[in-house]
Amino acid sequence: MKPAPFVYHAPRDRSSAVSLLGSLPNAKVLAGGQSLVPMLNMRYAAPDHVIDLNRVAGLAGVRIDEHAVEIGAMTRQVDLLESSELARRLPLVAAALRHVGHVQTRSRGTIGGSLCHLDPAAELPLVALVSDATLTAAGPRGERSIPAAEWARGFMAPALAPDEILVSIRFDLRGASGYGFHEFARRHGDFAIVAAAVLIELDGERVARARAALGGVGPTALRLGALEAALRGQQASRVGEVIGPALAALEPVADAYYGARYRRHLARVLAERAMRDAIGRAREAPR
């Protein structure tokens, strides 16, 4: 349970981090370390070089303006949870964070680390996906933006080139009037068996726009396009009738503990709870 030997690098600025990553063979980037260090301890990962981003200037912090929230990739989960302004402006992220690990792991864990590790049941990639967030990566050729819909290329495979690091994530605040987040896990702090995140905009009592996504049902978080389309224009009081049929075709992954049928059941129940919360909050939201 001790990591294999590696060479440790602690760059102080972003360009050194990127150039180290581009030049060192078999290197791994260390953010909060709450997923990577267990993998090192158990020797699931044995990089020759570890590039620690914790001393890189300018990668942590939250910037909130009228229409958007931009969060530095190295912002710690605890700092996000303790921000009352973030809880007010981006309540879906705050709600999801309460399910991420434990107080001791949130002290170190970062939003960028969760997004790059990309566990299929992780909460933060799910809320990024449902929120249509935009991720910014930096590499030797400069920065580029990646829509959250294109972030997950497959199981634990973010859309980062081998010489790129994630630097920030931007949430557009327009049109997110009601949110809901529900998950089920065996123990508090575990990865979800299934998690559901929903954003609803109402026009009177009709659904003007619905966004919904699930975690834990596939190799990556899954946006529910068919459900979103079926909900558009529906009476808010009748969305429950739409969810079951729209999720009937869902084919969740199964593992040794939880079968596909059980996950499909959880998906329907949790999506409906998240939807009801989202509608309730959208009704209360100021117009």
Binding site: K2, G33, N41, M42, N54, V103, Q104, T105
Partner: peptide, 27 residues
Amino acid sequence: CEHGVCGACTVIVDGRPVRACLLLAVQ
């Protein structure tokens, strides 16, 4: 457990409780 699950190694670093098995000493 030495992989961040049991919490036995919890110490306080700069005011925050952390798992000492998931933080490199050099950090």
